[in-house]
């Protein structure tokens, strides 16, 4: 299982390095969205709950781009059929795709979060606040990666692929947005970063756990035949 996942991830990373497609698009899209937000909400600087909202809408929409591309190459070039012919555990594909998507999301956020701080954020969360922000980002990204892999695999076999991903993905990710936005709001306060309410991290962790198990149980049905 571990060797299969490693091989699949090497393939994903090799593809993305040789012909960068998802990552530059997601990064560029997130920076553009921040600029759009500046004009749409007509503020030079944001803080508190508004800052958290702007950040999470931007990250979530950028993630949707990556999710709709996640299985397209495999589907069109026959990679999925080749994988099904190989005598390996199908769950390896779920794990590999989810880890790849998680890596993409984190890589995009390395660009998007500093861009957000530079362009819009009115305050600086400080070193302690930054560490807590990273914790929230990772927990939320795990949830987005799991749901994204599930929805991406579901949507790639449909005719309306690019419509299905946001239609199903966004409502499913509402709890992640609630938890992540609530958890990051205290970090962006004008008065300085306040402490992080632990229950939001618990909600995010519970979400990751439940949907991780569900995805593990159901993924086989999405890659049959």
């Amino acid at each position: 299982m571990r060797a299969t996942v490693a091989a699949l991830m090497r393939k994903e990373l090799g593809l993305e390095l040789r012909a960068p497609q998802a990552l530059p698009a997601m990064a560029l899209f997130s920076v553009t969205t921040l600029v759009v937000f500046h004009f749409a909400i007509q503020r030079g600087q944001v803080e508190g709950d508004l800052a958290a909202g702007v950040l999470w809408v931007t990250l979530l929409f950028a993630a949707m781009l990556g999710i709709s591309r996640l299985f397209v190459a495999d589907h069109e070039e026959g990679g999925l059929d080749a994988f099904l012919l190989a005598p390996v555990d199908r769950s390896a594909l779920l794990v590999a795709k989810a880890l790849t998507l998680l890596g993409f999301l984190l890589a995009v956020q390395v660009v998007a979060v500093p861009a957000f701080a530079f362009l819009l954020l009115g305050t600086s969360p400080g070193a302690g606040g930054f560490a807590r922000l990273v914790a929230v980002l990772v927990l939320a990204d795990v949830g987005i990666a799991i749901i994204g892999t599930l929805v991406g695999a579901l949507a790639v076999q449909t005719r309306a692929r690019d419509l299905i991903v946001p239609l199903i993905g966004l409502p499913l990710l509402v709890p992640v947005v609630i938890g992540a936005a609530k958890a990051t709001t205290p970090l962006f306060l004008q008065a300085g970063a306040a402490s992080l309410p632990g229950r939001w991290l618990a909600v995010l962790g519970l979400y990751d756990l439940v949907f991780g198990l569900l995805a593990y149980g159901l993924f086989d049905f999405l890659v049959e035949d």
Binding site: L150, R159, V174, V210, L218, F221, L222, D225
Partner: peptide, 29 residues
Amino acid sequence: SIEDPERQARYASVFAIVAGAFVPLNFLA
């Protein structure tokens, strides 16, 4: 948006299970 009836049924069931688990979690959040 899924033409093959067998695949349509299978994918719809996966969706129905995920959404069924989503209901209580969403209410909690």
